[in-house]
Design a binder for these strands. Sequence first.
DNA 1: CTTACGGCCTGTACGC
DNA 2: TGCGTACAGGCCGTAA
Length: 278
Amino acid sequence: MPELPEVETVRCGLIPHLVGRKLVRLLQRRRDLRSPLPTRFAARVEGRTVEAIDRRAKYLLLRLDDGTSWVIHLGMSGRMTLLSGRDAEAPFDRHDHVVFETDRGTQVRFNDARRFGVMLLIGTDALAKHKLFRHLGPEPLDESFDGAALAARLAGRKTPIKAALLDQKTLVGVGNIYACEALFDAGISPKRSAHTVQGDRADRLARAIRDVLRRSIADGGSTVRDHVQPDGELGYFQTRFKVYDRAGLPCPGCDCGKAIRRVVQAGRSTFYCAARQR
DNA sequence: CTTACGGCCTGTACGC
DNA sequence: TGCGTACAGGCCGTAA
């Protein structure tokens, strides 16, 4: 489900309930996510205190007090929901794969119908060198991310700019929705060869990426089908989409009067306005 | 090194 | 109603 804004929304929803709390019980209801859950998972988590929750790319990082990071990726359909009191006694859904509780009685359920999600326990020192993290590009919301940084990552690349934005080696956190939206906001065609996005175009695109991600976080992310905040609230940024999933509707950006088009690039739907985006 | 593609899963929407 | 198909917010491994 989640791109950067959805993961960030989940992170912020979990922090008040988990940071400083001891994890007292973990139930593993099935092991076979994208990769198998950690061996002796419950024993390695129970009794640990969560010191912080960070995010790198689309990964949540629960920092435990024994120097390990509990790495969680939500895949396409993963959710983390908080339950307390009576609600915590509700029967499990068939896709509630991992359930855990804190010393304050808060229950967290990790639900992931498609099982593209990931959970790992990795020593915090070793994280940056781990194969899942080693090749990740820059964080778009870091202060140092700007047009020049983006342009440097795009130099020499012949793939379409849309595909380059989805590649987490270029930059992290952008998925199909926000790639479409950012390209629209920047007025750049998704088909343009990535290496031609330099100078002013790269400045506009870097700014558009940062803006769209920030505005979505402010709205609690986008609830297209799966995303819910940990407290059960929906996200609302989908009401502000200008092109994503709007094929055939009029372009909202100018008076071009053209309809939003849908094409397939790298196996994913791209939505754009052929008049406004060059 | 880069790029393209199949595959991983389940659920849902749609056309017949 | 059922059935088949296409598609869905991600990413990995492989091959060229």
